[in-house]
């Protein structure tokens, strides 16, 4: 109970965010009630990129130290990243149908999240094709780092080709936050909640994966 305090805090915190997202914040001009997707869709996208980054960090650590528990962490982060990438794509697509009148039109944001989905899918396809744990860890880590090296190009190339209609509350040409203070408060609060949720899911997944590895190793002995 005592070590779980932050989990209960997250439970309450997320509930407060949900209430605030629906009742406390005003709507943005031109988006109407769909503004509220902001507080759930954007943090999911954030978790997707965070997971991708963390997976790359643990891949580097694995290649440097060759200890399998780093590989487990890289895999766990990628798994959660994949789930949140799917959630981001689906919620974004539903929202796009309402605002742009089509589920999918290769907007730069749609394209980049789709690329992340493909990279995650390829990563797991590679993992499933290798039997030996050491080799799997090694090759998956290399692939993950290669993917990490190409992401800046995606970020640079894609927006140059298509014009985006995606609303830009934070990242825009004049680098100012065009957001109501109440919206910003809930928005940042939601970022915090999603990050803690990611941490919880991540530790849980790591525990399960290391148990699995532990049992398998003991059974082999």
């Amino acid at each position: 109970m005592r070590e779980n305090w932050w989990k209960y805090l997250l439970g309450v915190w997320m509930a407060v965010i949900i209430v605030a997202a629906f009742l406390f914040t005003p709507t943005a001009k031109g988006l109407g009630q769909t503004t509220r997707v902001l507080y759930f869709h954007v943090p999911s996208a954030w978790v997707t990129t965070l997971a991708f980054f963390i997976s790359a960090v643990f891949s580097v650590l694995y290649l440097m130290r060759h200890q399998l528990h780093y590989d487990i962490r890289a895999e766990a982060a990628a798994q959660i990243g994949l789930i949140f990438a799917i959630l981001t794509t689906v919620t974004g697509s539903i929202w796009a149908k309402e605002i742009w009148h089509s589920y999918w039109n290769w907007d730069p944001r749609e394209t980049s999240i789709f690329m992340l989905l493909l990279i995650y899918a390829a990563y797991f396809a590679l993992r499933s094709a290798i039997e030996d744990p050491e080799q799997r860890a090694r090759l998956a880590a290399v692939y993950s780092l290669l993917a990490f090296a190409t992401v800046p190009f995606l970020v640079f190339v894609i927006p140059r080709i298509y014009d985006s209609l995606h609303p830009d509350p934070l990242i825009n040409p004049d680098r100012k936050i065009h957001m109501d203070v109440r919206m910003l408060r809930v928005f940042l609060g939601s970022f915090g909640a999603f990050t803690v949720l990611f941490y919880w899911l991540f530790t849980l997944r790591v525990k399960v994966l290391s148990l699995e590895q532990h049992v398998l190793r003991k059974l082999e002995e």
Binding site: G11, M14, A15, I18, F22, Q33
Partner: peptide
């Protein structure tokens, strides 16, 4: 919006 809010809270719970 209250209905959507309550649904959301239930899902989170």
């Amino acid at each position: 919006i209250y209905i959507v809010l309550i649904i959301n809270l239930i899902i989170w719970a």
